[in-house]
Design a protein around this nucleic acid. Sequence first.
RNA 1: UCCCCAGUAGCUCAGUUGGCAGAGCAAGUGGCUGUUAACCACUGGGUCCGCGGUUCGAGUCCGUGCUGGGGAGCCA
Length: 431
Amino acid sequence: MNPITTNNIDQYEGKTVTLSGWLVHKRSSGKVRFLVVRDGTGIAQVTLVKAEMDEEHFERYHSLTLESSLMVTGIVKKDDRAPGGYEILASQLNILQIAEEYPIAEKEHGVGFLLDHRHLWLRSSKQHAVLRVRHTVIQTARRFFDDRGFILLDAPIMTPVACEGTTTLFETDYFEEQKAYLSQSGQLYMEAGAMAFRKVYCCGPTFRAEKSKTRRHLTEFWMIEPEVAFAGLPDIMELAESLIVTIVKEVLSSNREDLRTLERDVSKLEMIESPFESISYDRAVRILRNEGVPFERGNDFGGGDETLISDQFEKPVFIHRYPASSKPFYMKNDPEKSSVVLCMDLLAPEGYGEIIGGSAREEDVELLSQKLSNAGLSPEAFSWYLDLRKYGSVPHAGFGMGIERTVAWICGIPHVRETIPFPRLLQRLYP
RNA sequence: UCCCCAGUAGCUCAGUUGGCAGAGCAAGUGGCUGUUAACCACUGGGUCCGCGGUUCGAGUCCGUGCUGGGGAGCCA
């Protein structure tokens, strides 16, 4: 197969090549006709000149519809009039399939329509750019942990029990008389992994049956979750900061063209460097009150609160030591102030909200059992988890980074639904 | 679960005081030897979301249901 693609066409100037792809657009000026062909890596213009090719191939232009698949053979020429600077002067035009009338036009579609056609929408340039950034984000995050000696340890998707209440869990039958729940987090399993391998991470989908209809929520979303033995809150904050800086730098270097397609203001990304600011929950509450928000101490922050706080900073900002009452059972209380837990959230700038959440984990079996009971959970169901504290318990900590929110922030797009190939939303399970 | 907005051609929308169903794009036909969302001419295209009501007459007003969107709550 000929290796030419539109992203390496410059290497073939003057040579005869065969390009395979799909028709994005066509224009005619009579005896000169133009095809814009998409091949998955980019686009290229193909020129059909009546005098340069035989009649039969030239006339195939008429039957071509939007998104028809084709193979075109011709000479690569440099031409400033062509998008990308190169075009193919065709000698042959072969059609693989004539597409039916393509539903997605070149402009003007509503969100509902586009989501109904997500399987086709993926072909458009903006979606292409977002999902290429997503690829870089995941690849860079995984490489980041691999390079630091972490072991990739996959967590199960089907789990026997809820971390929290069952109201936000998707439930499914598991053979006779058993229920399984779709995982909300790989964390508890990563804690087991950290006791086995010291440093581990998982990367996969998580599921929350929350009836949230906001730009920051999906019912199925991806997290990358590292867990580290012999580590405390400061260690994972440093790790999280370094991860974000590394990801942003890599996207800026690998996805310049995509960011341009998305019209992202890259100057806002270029200033993402260490160190990030780190403020306590108490100070965040003071910021809100200074902004005139009648915030009640002890609550968790809402979406609007997070935006107000992050707007005070140009870089991502850590908020640490939330009230224990607002956080889950496994977080370790601050020995210096038992009413708060050793946790942190990282808020992205520009109102994108929490992209990372993590904590030191309670390592004492008695305290952990107590916290489980206080949360209304049965210690029996978590017997395996309590075992981790009975057999060589050590201080450990970890966090989870939400892939979609991170991608949305980096791309500067308003809604997370475009940052995953096939979004699952409150009212949407198709396609 | 609550609040707000919308539903009219394949798509995006307009539709006046309640009085003949409209535009742009897309599609089809023809024209044009360098187009860039090309352009020009012509053509076809409607369950006005469903149900009920008011009225001589409803896309328009009222009630109700459904669907979608935005937001709140919720959200390790």
